[in-house]
Amino acid sequence: MGTSTSSKGPASGVSLDPPWLDDVIGGVGSGGDVVPPDDGADSPVIPPGIAPPNRYGDARRAFGKFARTGNTDQLRRAIGHYSSKGGGGAGASANRMRASTSAGAALFSFLNAVGQGSTPEARQWVDNLRATNPSAEDVVDAIVRELAPPGGSADEESLRDSMDHALSELIKDNPTIDPLSMGVDNIWELMKGYLANEAGNRLCFDLGPVFENSQLDPRTAVQREREMRRFLKNEIGAHVDLLRNTVANPSRSQLASILQEALKMTFELFEADL
């Protein structure tokens, strides 16, 4: 996904939520026995509206200005327009990313289970993997395979990419971290990178090849994408920090609600700046 995507984005006159979205959610973490089961308490789902004409026009223009100049004020405007008109408002835009937050909650629960060895299945999974003397990259690949649903939709590809990217970046920045025995603070930090990558992927896919259309040289295009993801991590991460202690020992569904609320608060902040 990311800037290499050739999509022109979704059209107008269609549902704001794609028809396969709930199938993607149902497949997250269903491939093995290690991910702790959900408690069945689903977050409220906002009925999707119908996309208006030229839903991303304002967002594309502001995003193009950010691509050309690196001005993060334009990036804030792009995200605000993306959410308010393109996504039907902050609540609906966060709800559209419920596959992302569901997968993030599954990733959190999985890493917490294997780190603490809280179930026989988790301990056996770790022992089997360690017996292969895996590299850090092998461990990341194994975690993604265990959690990410099979399939070829854009959402499924994004989930795999975001898990891989966030885990790899966290290990790169903190070489002493063992992803098979992570503490809860490190897992929360991972969630910030994961959500930022998911939000960045969503922007790049829905808005289309804005970086390419801005006629940037390849080095600048890569730099702008990195700037975008750092910006998103800082903004979303601030809301994750505000919310992470609102529920003691959150269940998987409560984790998904916390992550979705962090996205909603971030979208609301950018919409308020318009």
Rank of each mutant, 00 (worst) to 15 (best):
F270I: 01
P37E: 09
I177C: 02
A59N: 08
D17T: 13
L147H: 04
V45Q: 05
S162T: 02
A59D: 08
K65Q: 13
M182H: 11
E137I: 05
P47S: 00
N249I: 00
P47D: 05
P10L: 11
S93D: 04
A90F: 03
G151L: 10
L129R: 04
R252I: 04
L255Y: 10
G183V: 03
A148G: 00
Q215K: 15
E235D: 15
W20Q: 12
A221E: 09
R145N: 09
S153G: 06
I50Q: 02
C204A: 10
S251A: 10
T3F: 09
L111Q: 12
A78M: 03
L232P: 06
A148Q: 09
G88Q: 08
G57F: 05
D206S: 13
R244K: 15
D185L: 06
Y194S: 03
Q74E: 13
V14N: 01
R61M: 11
M1I: 02
R252Q: 14
G152H: 10
D138A: 11
A248F: 12
I25N: 04
G200A: 03
Q215R: 15
S153V: 00
P179I: 10
L170S: 10
A148F: 07
K233H: 06
K65N: 10
P150E: 13
D127H: 08
V140L: 03
P175D: 07
V144Y: 00
P250V: 01
V247D: 11
K8S: 14
S118L: 01
S257Y: 05
V34M: 06
P209T: 05
G31K: 14
D155V: 09
R76F: 08
K264F: 06
G27S: 12
L147T: 07
P209D: 13
Q215A: 13
A122P: 07
P47V: 00
S214D: 09
K233W: 03
R61N: 01
E268H: 07
P19F: 08
F63Y: 15
V126R: 14
K264Q: 14
A67G: 00
E227H: 11
A11L: 14
S83Q: 03
A51V: 05
R230E: 14
D161K: 08
T119A: 10
G104M: 01
A78T: 07
D42R: 11
V14K: 04
A122E: 06
M97L: 14
A59I: 04
D73V: 12
M182P: 02
A199F: 10
L263C: 05
G87R: 12
S7D: 12
D173I: 08
G200F: 00
P53T: 07
N245W: 00
L21V: 13
A142D: 00
S214Y: 04
D141I: 02
L75Y: 04
A166M: 00
N133C: 01
M1N: 09
S7Q: 12
T176V: 10
A272G: 12
M182Y: 00
T69D: 01
R244P: 08
N234E: 15
G117M: 08
L16M: 12
L167Y: 07
S15H: 10
R61Y: 02
M1F: 07
L263Q: 07
N71M: 04
S253G: 11
T101M: 01
G27M: 08
S102Y: 11
